[in-house]
Amino acid sequence: MPGDTITAGSHDNDDEVLHDYSPLLVVYRSGRLECPRADFVRPVPAGLDDATGVESKDVALSPFSFVRLYMPPGTGGASAVSGDTKKGKLPVVVYFYGGGFVMGSAASRVFHRFLNDLVAASPAIAVSVDYRLAPEHMLPAAYEDSLAALKWVLSAADPWLAAHGDIARVFLAGDSAGGKICHHLAMHSDVRGIGLKGIVLIQPWFWGKEPVGGEKEHRRSLEKHTADVRGRKKHLWEFVCPDAVDGVDDFRMNPIAPGAPGLERLACEKVMVCVAEGDHLKWRGKAYAEAVARAKKCPEAVELFESDGVGHKPEA
């Protein structure tokens, strides 16, 4: 439902809310879905960005997923197809957008703007991955689409990637739920041996039953990710991942939970975790960074960056 405020569904009993995960998603018993922040994720077309000179294009990977490729100024279009690599090949950043697995798209204006700016400043080739969303497609659909997209990138099947992408220098990056996808892929058995250069988790959406750091005083912030379902609280994670084991302590939500797969298995050379001063998820991000450093027995392999004076953007 990227970009749509309301999707198809009966308008009978429209006022009866089944799940309220504002500002991300409201689910009505009639089947109607409402995205209060639809304008935030409004889709925009690919093409030449006048402000940065970055060129982008969409490539369909399946009937339900696509990627948007971004090329720095002077390397896209005809020069990419010609295979002119005199300036050397560029690193490839595979990006996964955030939105709680319920809203957003690789075509959303906010992510499109961000990728244009990132590629212009790098320079690097970026591949922004679109994936199926809940509740139409519950997890692991998003993970499956993301893994398929990464494998497609590594195949260098696209002319832009073949001509200018250095497949030996692939980085994964993502914000919020997208950060969670980065972790999931770096832990996946199919990714081991590929040799990812690094992963960048931007305000990653991790959680757990037991507070870490300063979370105890800020647990009320959890309420915006929780809906009252038949007298019990149901976290957004439990909604989008019906097969979650042990709720928010499922290893896909809480990678530092007891019994979670060892973080030494991360198939990347380096890890960067970005947190924000005003984000209630920041302690979880810091705890993750510390746990990775311990697991890899190499503090230099992990970098933690904290932004001052900002909160969680976009919302998980």
Rank of each mutant, 00 (worst) to 15 (best):
V119S: 00
Y143I: 02
H137L: 03
K209N: 14
W207L: 13
V170Y: 04
A121R: 15
R220N: 09
M187N: 02
M138V: 10
K216H: 06
H112K: 00
H112L: 00
S176P: 01
V153F: 05
L150V: 10
Q203T: 15
A121G: 13
H137M: 03
H218R: 13
V153A: 08
L196V: 06
A177T: 09
L133G: 10
I194H: 12
R192T: 13
H183V: 02
G179R: 03
N116S: 13
D145L: 13
P159Q: 08
A173R: 00
G174K: 07
A168F: 00
R220H: 09
H218G: 01
H218W: 01
S105Q: 03
H112A: 14
H188G: 04
V200T: 12
Q203P: 00
D158Y: 05
M138T: 11
K197Q: 12
L139E: 13
R192M: 10
E136A: 14
G214Q: 14
M187D: 03
A121P: 07
A168W: 01
P211I: 06
A126G: 11
W160A: 14
D190F: 02
Y143K: 02
V212G: 11
V170K: 05
V170S: 03
I202K: 08
A148V: 14
P159H: 04
S155A: 15
L150A: 04
P204G: 08
F171R: 09
H218L: 04
L139D: 04
E217N: 07
V129C: 05
H183C: 04
S108E: 11
P135W: 11
A141G: 12
H184G: 00
F206R: 07
L115S: 05
P123M: 07
S122W: 14
L115H: 05
H218Q: 06
D117S: 05
I194V: 15
A149P: 02
L133Q: 14
L118K: 06
D130N: 12
Y131E: 08
S128G: 09
L172P: 04
R109S: 07
A142D: 11
P123C: 10
P140E: 06
V153R: 10
R109W: 02
V191K: 12
A156W: 01
K180V: 07
H218K: 09
N116Q: 12
H112W: 02
A124Y: 03
A124H: 06
V200F: 13
G213H: 11
V200W: 10
G208E: 02
W205I: 00
R192D: 10
A162S: 09
M187C: 03
G214F: 10
F111S: 04
R219P: 00
V119C: 09
G208Q: 01
L196W: 11
V212Q: 06
A163N: 07
P159N: 05
D166N: 12
R192H: 15
G213P: 12
G195A: 06
A121E: 13
Y131N: 06
G178R: 01
C182E: 00
F114T: 02
D117I: 02
R192W: 14
Q203M: 13
Y143D: 11
A120M: 00
A177C: 08
P135V: 12
L201M: 15
A149F: 06
L118V: 14
L201K: 02
A156N: 08
